[in-house]
Design a protein around this nucleic acid. Structure first.
Lengths: 108, 108
DNA sequence: CCGCATACCTAGCGACTCTATGCATCGTGT
DNA sequence: ACACGATGCATAGAGTCGCTAGGTATGCGG
C-alpha cells in the first residue's frame, strides 16, 4: 500500500479507536494493524507525531502512567475530538463514495 | 472537505477519467467536479502539476493542440498508466474497506 | 546474556496539494 | 468599444503530513 494514501485520514482513525476506550501509542499501532487486516502497519514516527498533533488541537488528552516499570502515555478522546470524529465520518462517506464512483467510471 | 484527504488519490482519479477518453487539464477539473457532485473542486495548481507528474512517470502522454485559437494540451492514458490504474483500484478497495471498518468501530 | 517485543521521543526528508500570480483568448452584456 | 467572466495553461512558494532513521530504556525467553 502506497503510504501517501493515508494522508489526512490517520487522525480520524486514531479518534475512532479512542472512542472505544483509552489507548497508548503502541496499542494504537497494534489496533490499526489488527483491525485493518495488516493493511496499516504504521511506524512509530508516524503515529506519535499524530498523537501530539491531536493533543495540541485539543482532540485528545493524555496522562503518563507506568506499567511494569515501563512508562506509558495513555490517550483519551476529549469532547472536541468527538465532534471532530463526527465530522470526519461524514467527510469519509462523501469522499469515499466520490472516489469509488469516479474509479468505477462511465457515468455518462 | 479537507483537502489533505485527497493526497495520493488524485493520480488514480485522473487515470480513471482518461481511461474513458482523452481530456485536457481544464476538462479534467470539470469532470472531477461533476462526477463527485461538487465534492472535488480542484484548483489548477493541483491538477496541472499532477498531470506533469503522470507524464514524467510515463502513465499518460500529451499532445498540444489548438481549439478556436486557444492552445490546449490533451492527455491520453498510456499503457503503463493502465497498469497503474489497475493497481490503484485494488489499493483503493483495500484502503477504503479498512478505513470504513475502523471508523465504524467495535469489532471486538 | 543476547535478542526481541514493548514503549516512548524526535530531527530531517520527501511527496503532494494549495495559494497566488501571470499570461492569453473568446463570448456576452451594455 | 470595453469590461468581465469563463476558458486554458503554467509555475514559484508555502504548508501539511507520513516516513526514515536514529536514540533511550525495560522485561522476558532461550
Amino acid at each position: 500500500m502506497r503510504s501517501e494514501l493515508l494522508k489526512g485520514h490517520l487522525d480520524s482513525l486514531v479518534l475512532a479507536l479512542l472512542e472505544e476506550g483509552p489507548l497508548h501509542g503502541y496499542g494504537i499501532i497494534e489496533q490499526l494493524r489488527r483491525r485493518s487486516d495488516e493493511i496499516f502497519d504504521l511506524p512509530e514516527g508516524t503515529v506519535y507525531p499524530a498523537l501530539y498533533r491531536l493533543e495540541r488541537a485539543g482532540s485528545v488528552t493524555s496522562t503518563s502512567t507506568s506499567v511494569g516499570g515501563r512508562p506509558r502515555r495513555v490517550y483519551r478522546l476529549a469532547r472536541p475530538g468527538r465532534t471532530a470524529l463526527d465530522a470526519s465520518r461524514r467527510d469519509w462517506l462523501q469522499f469515499s463514495s466520490a472516489v469509488t464512483k469516479i474509479l468505477r467510471g462511465s457515468p455518462a
